[in-house]
Design a protein around this nucleic acid. Sequence first.
RNA 1: GCCGAGGUGGCGGAAUGGCAGACGCGUCGGUCUCAAAAACCGAUGAGGGCAACCUCGUGCGGGUUCGACUCCCGCUCUCGGCACCA
Length: 819
Amino acid sequence: MESKPRRSTYIPQEIEPKWQKIWVERGVMKASDKSPKPKYYDLVMYPYPSGDLTVGHARNYVMGDVLARMKRMQGFEVLHPFGWDAFGLPAENAAMKRNVHPQEWTLANIAKGKRELQMLGILYDWDREVTSCMPDYYRWTEWLFLLLYERGLAYRAMAPVNWCPVDKTVLANEQVINGRCWRHPDVEVEKRDLEQWFFKITDYAERLLNDLQLLDKWPHKVRLMQTNWIGRSEGAEVDFPVDGHEGESIRIFTTRPDTLFGATFMVLAPEHPLVEKVTTDANRDRVREYVAKARKASEIDRLSTEREKNGVATGGFAINPLNGERIPIWVADYVLMTYGSGAIMAVPAHDERDFDFARKYNLPIREVIAPAGGAGDDLSEAYVGPGVMVNSGQFDGLDSKTGFDRIVTWLEEKGLGKRTVKYRLRDWLISRQRYWGAPIPVVYCDVDGIVPMPKDQLPVLLPKEYKPLADNHEFWRTTCPKCGREARRETDTMDTFVDSSWYFLRYASPHDDKEPFDSELANHWMPVDQYTGGVEHAILHLLYSRFFTKVLFDAGMLDVSEPFIRLFNQGMVKRFGQVMSKTKGNGVSPDELVEKEGADAGRIYEMFIGPPEEDVEWDDAGLHGVVRFLQRVWRIVLEPQSIQVAGASPAAPDQTLLRRKVAQTVKKVTEDYDDLRFNTAVAYLMELANAMQAYLQGGGARDAVWDSAVRTLVKLLNPIGPHISEEMWERLGEGGPERGLLADAPWPEFDAAAAAEPQMTLVVQVAGKVRDRLTAATGLSEEQALALALASEKVRAALNGGRPSKVIYVQDKLINLVP
RNA sequence: GCCGAGGUGGCGGAAUGGCAGACGCGUCGGUCUCAAAAACCGAUGAGGGCAACCUCGUGCGGGUUCGACUCCCGCUCUCGGCACCA
């Protein structure tokens, strides 16, 4: 019995661990600070180590890895680091549930996550790994808090804050979604008056807004979301004197000073400090009752736009500074204490909210802006558009835009008001009543007040014992750094978004023990060339990081004022209609994937599954299609003799054609990787493999042209399928541990001459409908093309023997004959 | 309510003013096999025709253009963001 010649088969499980080991030994992804090559900083958002890494989460890490690998081959010195957003509540929840220390749980998850990333062939410079919960990192988070404090950007204030009753901590505005906690969509936040630490991000509102214009490589959507979040409004502040209270006035903000003559009443927020003063004795009980009720109402109820507006009259009156008119002062909770000055002038004719309110309480509605093209005395709704000013004394007849300026100027001259810009953005509340976070490094002393820790005494270490810091006497009993008397340490920790607002800088000098980062190195690597992560951070993390970068720029520690040049938000991977997660039971773990089909197939499938920015549905059958593709590539590259010359209708093997296809693929795949269009890049690689197989089936010679095609295919495949391509490279005799890695080989150059099409398909249309397709040389003149078209039987038939009255010729593409 | 993105075969998707459906999945037919699976080869938008071919077709209705998935206007549905910010 004769045995067939033994064929090598593609068995990913045999080759993947081998190359992973070699890459690590060779330090393939180590970034050198001193390289003469141009730098490329390729960053993925560092994750929370939840211990729940599925191939779904890994999708964006694969994207980052593909780019990093190609950029290296293209001759860049690539910084591709990884780290862990390791402080945060889940660790405390796990600690309470399982009685393990948050740190123990976190570090175990990190070890697990790291192993899972490595088994997918994702390479990072692990020497630069940062872990935000370790003292060598949070020491510098504390340091940066002090920097902000020194610069007047960190302050402590009593304020009504959002309290999550489940997490038992306060939340930043950005963490409250529709009045509910961002981590618990079922839990309404409560308002509490607490003294808390804030970062003064509002000082940077204007710059955060303006510099969005520089970020032209960010998704339009994210820029828009930040623009709306910052919420800039131009208008005027105007003081309305309170009738009968000499020297007392109510300051309002309006974006429509042109409607000042239409103000028929004023509204104060229930929390407004002047409420008590302006209220008359006759109205006092009702007003007090209303204010008490409003304070108790939940945020959700208060902010609901559906709810009918309500309020009470104070009995007091204010004077319109423009016309001296006496108008009543009301209290209503549709006016928010947290925006503007907590008081408004109500112009019901030209504001929908004021209109509703006026209707309900029969307050006068006076039209002062007439819509262009006719007086709109229809009072069924407020007219909020521009128009011509009426009932406005000396300003009558002006268009509202001019009136805006004139009135503001008039107010400024009289000292009654001034042009103002307001933002919706609020200061960033960073205090958290939690154990597992970076301690806020300040001490409260009866004598010296708030005393920041001296920087050389950092870090304020978290105590080993897991219990609330406020209950840990050993932690908070301390001495004042200034006077040495007994003092109390701050027991709140920082929002974990503080940790993640600067981690991308730490990667530049992760072991620096003198400062948060080495400015020279940070300036070398920054800005991040490509930043990849989920869109859920469109506001929170990205806004905070931009803020920190600007503060550090102002402090002279950084040369850049925007951290991320190009931002990409990848879509999520779903399975059975839901986002993949281990807890939901629909996750595919890296172990499962690698064991079943191999890391390369999984990587390529995740890139091929759909457009990278879209949510995609994981499908095991689809994954198998990629396995087939890899097996085919393996055969084409290593076993071309095993591919039978087809009997039926083999396409004539054409070397020029093959060379052209290879050259065209180089261009398309390179551009697509660069633009993160991985799905089409894979499609082009498949097309090339199909063309190469057809060439073999046609009996094509395996000569120099073939060899070059094979090597190019393997190289183009490398960033996305690194193990199989590295193995094939070695077996082709091109590389391997001795002769050099494919990962270090140069990227294929685009050969424009080889890619050029000498012939074209001339599409012939008659009246815009395709009637024939002709093969012709490129560069035809219109006359030549027309002659060719008219020679076609089908075209003549479509023209019914007539002559075209008009001809449109698109060079090398199409000719359209209009009868 | 306001702002934004989107709607293409049985499915995921490709094509951004010029050949609609690349690439893949699935399905059907074939080769191999005692058989099945796998693998490989071929077909595959719908309708009509023996066929060459013809007609229709990118959510709906209009428009611009020699020509529209692509641009404009209106509508509709889906998804995302914001939601009393004066």
